[in-house]
């Protein structure tokens, strides 16, 4: 076939992107950002029954400066929103966000004055995880999906190209936003 055929055993070929992705996804450090009910389920995932340590994520960082994943677990109030953004800004790049539960994803059942209608108004979100609260298994699924995304993230010029492509695709999409007079 090609080069692979001629390699001695014990050597595999891959791309730098895949190696970096593997390193990044295998040891993600989430920041503890428990807000409400979902936080309890997030803690349950960290507990022995569901065991997040299987995915190299048991180290919940106490400080955002040593974390690369923010799990927004619960409803974000108007009062909490600036705090949340500040913590996000304190996290080093690269960083990812999971909006855990419907409240963090869209405001959920609390369509009222106190709750921000989706945390994506404040920080960019990678994974929206529905459920009220999502079951621990669902959270694990979201984590695995995010790992997949991280694994396949491109680097450097490829990444820039990818961003441009995604942006163009989004611009072509028709938005459901309507203006009121």
């Amino acid at each position: 076939m090609g080069l692979e055929e001629k390699l001695p055993s014990g050597i595999a070929l891959t791309t730098v992107e895949q190696v970096v992705g593997l390193a990044r996804k295998s040891s993600m450090w989430p920041a503890t950002f428990g807000l409400a009910c979902c936080a309890i389920e997030m803690m349950a995932v960290g507990g022995p029954h569901y065991d997040l340590a299987r995915f190299g994520m048991e180290k919940f960082g106490a400080t955002p400066r040593q974390a690369d994943l923010m799990v927004v677990a619960g409803r974000v109030s108007q009062k909490m929103a600036p705090v949340l953004r500040q913590i996000y800004d304190q996290m080093p790049e690269p960083k990812w966000v999971i909006a855990m539960g419907v409240c963090a994803s869209s405001g959920g059942m609390f369509n009222n004055y106190a709750i921000v209608q989706g945390v994506d108004h404040i920080v960019p979100v990678d994974i929206y995880l529905p459920g009220c609260p999502p079951r621990p298994e669902m959270f694990l699924d979201a984590v695995l999906k995010l790992h997949d995304k991280v694994q396949n993230t491109k680097l450097g010029a490829h990444r820039e190209l990818e961003i441009t492509e995604i942006e163009e695709r989004m611009l072509r999409r028709s938005l459901p936003v309507v203006t009121r007079d």
Binding site: Q78, A81, P82, R85, N111, N112, Y113, V116, Q117, H121, I122
Partner: peptide
């Protein structure tokens, strides 16, 4: 006071 309809400011 309305139930919803408060803009998010940041």
């Amino acid at each position: 006071y309305p139930l919803g309809g408060i803009p998010v400011e940041y």
